[in-house]
Simulated assay, not measured.
Amino acid sequence: MTLFEIIILAIIQGLTEFLPISSSAHLILPSEVLGWNNQGMAFDVAVHVGSLLAIIIYFREDIWRLTGAWFSYGLSANQTQDSRLGWWIIIATIPAVILGFALKDFIEIYTRSALVIAITTIGFGLLLWYADYKATQTKTVHQITWKNAIFIGLAQAIAIIPGTSRSGITMTAGLMIGLDRESAARFSFLLSIPVILGAGLLATYDLIQTPDAVDWQALIFGAAFSFVSAYACIYLFLAWISKIGMLPFVIYRLILGAALLLFVFI
C-alpha cells in the first residue's frame, strides 16, 4: 500500500469503528470499488489496536471502576450498579464470540461483497431510524437488565455480516429497550472493548500462522492514525448524539447503500 492508502484506510477504520455506519464495510469497499490492493491481515490488526487503545484511554475511568467493582462483588449476592454492569457486558459479549467462531469461514467466503454490504447498509440503516424514531429514551446505562444485555448481545452477533455495523446494531437494540441515546452509545462503546480485543487476538493468531513479510511502517502509521481518528470520533459522537440523533447516519447509510447498488448493477 502507498502511504496515502495507509492513512485513508486507518482514518476510515478509526472513524467507522464507533459510528453506526459499519467499519468492515468501509474497509472492504476501497478494494471493491477503487481497485486498491487488499490491506492484508497485519494491517487489520494494527488499525484495530489503534481503535482499541483509543477507547481504553477514553473510558479508562469507567473501565477501572467497572473492573474493580466486578472483582469485588462479581460473585456476591449483593451487586453494585458497576459490578452488575460489568456482568451485563460479559453476558452481551458471549453471543458474538460463539457466532464469530462458528461462522467465521462462511462470512469470509460468502458475505464480503459490495451487494451484501449494500443490502445490509440500507436494511439496518432503516432499522436504526425506526428504533430512534420510536425510542422512549427512559433508561440510563445502569438500568439495563440481564434480559436487555442478552438482547443487545444477540443483536451484536448479527454484526459479523459486513455492512451491519456493530455499533449501529447495538445502539439500535439499546434504543429499542428504552435507553437514551447517550446511554445506548456508551454501552455500545464499552461492549466493543472485549469484541475488538478478541477479534484482534484472533487475527494476530492467524497472522502468526502465515509466512507473509510484515511492513512495519504501514502498521505503525495505521495504528497511529486509527487511534487519533477513533478517539476524536468517540469524543464528538458522545458530545453530539443527544442533540443530532441518528438521522444523519441513517441518511448516510441510505446514500451509501444506493451508490453501492448502482455500482453492482450498472
Rank of each mutant, 00 (worst) to 15 (best):
residue 41 M to W: 05
residue 132 D to C: 10
residue 241 I to Y: 11
residue 205 Y to R: 13
residue 180 D to N: 15
residue 261 L to D: 10
residue 67 T to P: 07
residue 37 N to P: 14
residue 129 W to K: 07
residue 66 L to H: 05
residue 213 A to V: 13
residue 95 P to R: 10
residue 266 I to N: 12
residue 97 V to Q: 08
residue 255 I to V: 15
residue 146 W to D: 06
residue 11 I to E: 05
residue 175 L to R: 01
residue 86 G to D: 04
residue 47 V to F: 01
residue 183 S to T: 01
residue 229 S to A: 15
residue 241 I to A: 14
residue 183 S to P: 00
residue 36 W to R: 03
residue 208 I to Q: 07
residue 175 L to W: 05
residue 75 L to S: 15
residue 198 G to V: 13
residue 17 E to Y: 01
residue 210 T to L: 15
residue 52 L to G: 01
residue 168 G to W: 02
residue 117 I to R: 05
residue 155 A to H: 04
residue 89 I to G: 00
residue 36 W to G: 12
residue 138 T to R: 15
residue 200 G to K: 04
residue 239 A to I: 03
residue 8 I to Q: 02
residue 80 T to I: 14
residue 68 G to D: 06
residue 76 S to M: 14
residue 14 G to H: 06
residue 218 A to Y: 04
residue 163 G to R: 12
residue 264 V to C: 01
residue 135 A to W: 09
residue 87 W to K: 11
residue 46 A to C: 13
residue 166 R to D: 03
residue 103 L to E: 03
residue 57 I to Y: 09
residue 144 I to P: 04
residue 181 R to S: 12
residue 234 I to D: 00
residue 100 G to V: 05
residue 84 R to P: 01
residue 137 Q to V: 07
residue 124 F to P: 02
residue 165 S to V: 14
residue 45 V to F: 02
residue 184 A to F: 07
residue 241 I to P: 00
residue 139 K to I: 04
residue 73 Y to V: 07
residue 29 L to C: 05
residue 226 S to T: 07
residue 119 I to A: 08
residue 240 W to A: 13
residue 17 E to M: 05
residue 19 L to A: 14
residue 19 L to E: 14
residue 163 G to F: 06
residue 137 Q to M: 13
residue 15 L to R: 02
residue 213 A to G: 09
residue 169 I to H: 08
residue 71 F to K: 09
residue 216 W to V: 10
residue 211 P to K: 07
residue 40 G to R: 00
residue 177 I to E: 11
residue 71 F to S: 11
residue 224 A to M: 14
residue 184 A to G: 08
residue 127 L to K: 07
residue 19 L to Y: 12
residue 204 T to R: 02
residue 139 K to Q: 01
residue 253 R to Q: 09
residue 57 I to R: 05
residue 161 I to G: 14
residue 256 L to M: 15
residue 164 T to V: 15
residue 123 G to D: 07
residue 128 L to R: 04
residue 180 D to T: 04
residue 172 T to L: 10
residue 240 W to K: 11
residue 141 V to R: 08
residue 231 Y to F: 15
residue 174 G to W: 06
